[in-house]
Simulated scan of single mutants.
Amino acid sequence: MPVLCIDFGGTEVKLGILDGPRILATTERPNSGSDADLDHVRQALDELTESAGRSDIAGVGIALPGVVDRANGSLIAAHDKYGYAQGRDLREWAAQSFGVPAVVENDARAALVGETTYGVAAGTHDAVLITLGTGIGTAALIDGQVLRGVHDHAAILGGHVTVALDGPSCNCGNVGCAEAVASTWALQRDVASDPVLAASPLGERAARGAIGLRDLLETRDAPAVGALFDRYLRAWGAAIVTLCHAYDPDIVIVSGGVMRSADVILPPLADYVHAHLWSSSHRPAFVTPSAPEYSVLLGLSALAVNPGDHAATHRKDAQ
């Protein structure tokens, strides 16, 4: 049965109607950062459902870039993002808007479920995922169970592991987080604060508007940009090493829009991780989704129909 899938991203909201792994229709809306987003989403999904000719919607899946309280269907915390959703019962909103039950999940966990259920790592029971973009999202699957933890924080804060003790402050309150060193928002800070980078081809792009990791990749032949790109690769690699030491996966899934250039990023990233893992640690395979922009929607499709299939051992769920 088709489900409505809502991926609240860092810069836009991605919407879809999915039936299992089949994507029936998709659209996007800008993320305004206000509760008007919910009205825009409801209207967009009504239009999408009508245009697709589907009235047999079975459920709703909602993903957010932050710590999600699945038991209460709300966002606990997402620094500088979606303040209007914190503490709000989004399952109730979905029920009132669409008349069907809903599941709410962290976006990286949803992406992990999507890729291990329908995607590039389908059938894998032990995997970690890292998403590179506006921030750095992570998630882990152990023995076929999504790791969530008693307080819903487990495995999703891998982007906030310290990779530089004297590094920049992060908006999470930590110092030298992988995300504070090597993300889209860190990139914009780096270019603005470095005159050499500001004068580089990357800086020229920044002067014309917002830049992202793809801009870093595409201008890496400039010496200063190449050095920055190498630093970003090492920061991502250090974060993945920590994920591997913590969760011992068979597979590392690297996602995010920049991974459309996986041929440039994945080999050196895998080499870095394999070289820095504990001597007897398993050297995991590295894979990237064929369509990373849809990983979260695929996971929401699976979670909305069979949420119990992906439930980890969780004290709240057992109460």
Rank of each mutant, 00 (worst) to 15 (best):
Val273Gln: 05
Leu141Asp: 04
Val175Pro: 05
Thr219Arg: 14
Asp230Trp: 03
Gly256His: 03
Ser34Ile: 01
His151Tyr: 12
Pro65Arg: 05
Ile130Asn: 00
Val60Cys: 07
Asp152Thr: 01
Glu50Pro: 00
Leu48Trp: 14
Ala121Ser: 11
Ser200Gln: 13
Gly173Phe: 08
Ile156Met: 11
Val175Trp: 03
Leu197Asn: 03
His314Leu: 14
Pro168Lys: 06
Gly87Lys: 08
Arg54Val: 15
Val41Cys: 09
Gly123Asp: 09
Pro292Ser: 06
Val120Met: 01
Leu216His: 12
Asp250Leu: 12
Asp107Trp: 09
Val296Gly: 01
Thr134Tyr: 10
Thr124Met: 01
Ala63Trp: 09
Arg70Gln: 15
Thr49Cys: 15
Tyr82Ser: 05
Val175Thr: 15
Leu297Gly: 02
Cys244Leu: 06
Ala52Val: 04
Leu217Trp: 04
Val287Lys: 00
Ala198Arg: 15
Ala110Tyr: 06
Ile211Ala: 10
Ala318Cys: 03
Ala94His: 11
Ala302Ile: 15
Arg70Asn: 05
Arg22Met: 05
Asp107His: 10
Gly209Thr: 14
Glu50Asn: 14
Arg70Thr: 13
Gly308Trp: 06
Ala102Lys: 10
Gly20Tyr: 13
Arg214Asp: 10
Asp143Ile: 03
Glu293Pro: 00
Gly299Asp: 12
Val241Asp: 03
Leu15Asp: 11
Gly133Lys: 13
Gln96Val: 06
Arg283Met: 03
His314Ile: 01
Val67Gly: 01
Gln319Ala: 15
Thr116Val: 14
Leu243Trp: 12
Ala246Glu: 03
Arg91Asp: 04
Ala85Glu: 08
Glu218Ile: 05
Leu132Gln: 07
Val68Asp: 14
Ile211Arg: 10
Leu4Thr: 03
Thr27Ala: 14
Ser32Met: 07
His276Leu: 09
Gly158Ile: 05
Pro101Cys: 12
Leu64Trp: 12
Ala285Trp: 01
Val163Ala: 07
Arg29Ser: 12
Ala78Arg: 09
Asn72Val: 05
Lys14Phe: 14
Met1Gln: 12
Thr134Phe: 12
Glu218Met: 09
Met259Ala: 01
Pro2Ser: 06
Leu187His: 11
Ala154Ile: 01
Ser55Asp: 15
Ala186Pro: 10
Asp248Gly: 04
Leu90Ser: 07
Gly257Ile: 09
Arg54Trp: 08
Asp107Pro: 04
Leu269Phe: 04
Asp166Val: 00
Gly53Ile: 11
